[in-house]
């Protein structure tokens, strides 16, 4: 058995809570990502689907930024080494404890020796596993997020045998919680992604911009935490490259072949491809949840609309309180 990275001495006092039996195709520890480091060439990192991860934490009274395990396509199994509470959100999959089916989007109690198994996701890509108190794995630059492509010492995907400590072993008060429908309903919607026009917008031909919002794009196999390549009707005449400038997750780049690349959490910090716009942050999660071969469309939105949608989400999230039976949370 190996510990996940070098866990600091104060955290060593916390006994490990879960042992990974199988990580599935890929699973990494992620929180909301890093801050104040991108000028060193370090990526932001962080959860790809902020809503599913936030609700996984909410179900356990965790901090908004607590670290979860982001599981790609399911197939993840773990054993509880001590009593703990967990939640599983995101892409729908069969979840069992000791072989017995349990629900997603709710809090689950695990006793020592319990085996949690998350099956393969069906219609979407990303599943989030949270634990009460958050996963207290090693931090890099003030964040638990693992950015695999940077190849930092100890920062890789989870492997069988890895031990995951939790921040709290105190049970939540009251009955098990069940997330309200607004926590997951958006995931079932057809993926129409709000695109905020960028300042280079006018350098694109109007026919190419129309094509961007009227054609369907397929999520290609060449899609990872850095970005998703989209395949569809290519832009006929994208503008030439620009002097490299800072770029953010959500930016849509158009390389010479005219096929868009949507950048995501682990993207590079600077880039020189022209960009017609940036995908709204909530819709980045919706895109990230799409399987290869899924079709997405873009529609124009604007900065303030995107900001207001994001704030509405945060407001609903912060103001959701759990009633005593855990089943009818309401929005104050």
């Amino acid at each position: 058995m190996k510990e996940l990275g070098a866990i600091s001495s104060e955290l060593r006092a916390i006994s490990p809570t879960l042992r990974v039996l199988s990580p599935g195709i890929k699973a990494t520890v992620q929180d909301q990502g890093r801050q104040g480091i991108r000028h060193h060439g370090l990526a932001r990192g962080g959860v790809l689907d902020l809503r599913s991860a936030a609700w996984a934490n909410k179900l356990l009274d965790n901090e908004r930024n607590a670290a979860c395990v982001e599981i790609v396509l399911g197939g993840f199994q773990a054993e509880a080494l001590s009593a703990c509470e967990v939640s599983v959100t995101g892409a729908r999959a069969d979840v069992t404890v000791n072989g017995k089916p349990v629900g997603m989007w709710q809090s689950l109690q695990l006793a020592p020796g319990d085996k949690l198994a998350i099956g393969h996701s069906r219609n979407h890509r990303l599943i989030y596993l949270a634990v009460r108190g958050g996963f207290k794995t090693r931090e890099w630059f003030g964040s638990h997020s693992v950015v695999e492509r940077e190849a930092l010492e100890g920062a890789g995907p989870l492997q069988a045998g890895d031990l995951l400590p939790a921040g709290s072993h105190e049970p939540i008060q009251g009955a098990p919680r069940i997330a309200p429908p607004q926590a997951w309903q958006w995931l079932e919607q057809s993926p129409v992604l709000g695109l905020i026009p960028g300042y280079q917008h006018h350098q694109f031909r109007s026919a190419d911009l129309r094509r961007l919002v009227t054609s369907q794009y397929q999520v290609s196999d060449d899609s990872d935490r850095m970005g998703y390549r989209l395949a569809g009707s290519p832009m006929a005449d994208p503008p030439p490259g620009i002097v490299s400038e800072g770029i953010i997750p959500g930016a849509v780049q158009i390389p010479g072949d005219g096929q868009p690349i949507a950048l995501l959490a682990d993207c590079q910090t600077i880039g020189g491809y022209p960009k017609p716009g940036v995908i709204a942050s909530l819709d980045c999660g919706l895109l990230a949840q799409q399987l290869p071969g899924s079709e997405i469309t873009f529609e124009w939105t604007d900065t303030l609309t995107a900001q207001n949608r994001r704030r509405l989400f945060e407001r609903q999230y912060q103001q959701t309180v759990w009633s005593e039976n855990g089943r009818s949370p309401h929005w104050r």
Partner: peptide, 22 residues
């Protein structure tokens, strides 16, 4: 303020959109 990314001719200022609007 979340991040500052200077590059050749530009400075990208990344902020928390929940704390301030554009």
């Amino acid at each position: 303020l979340v991040d500052l990314v200077p590059s050749y001719t530009t400075l990208l200022v990344i902020y928390d959109p929940v704390a301030v609007n554009v």
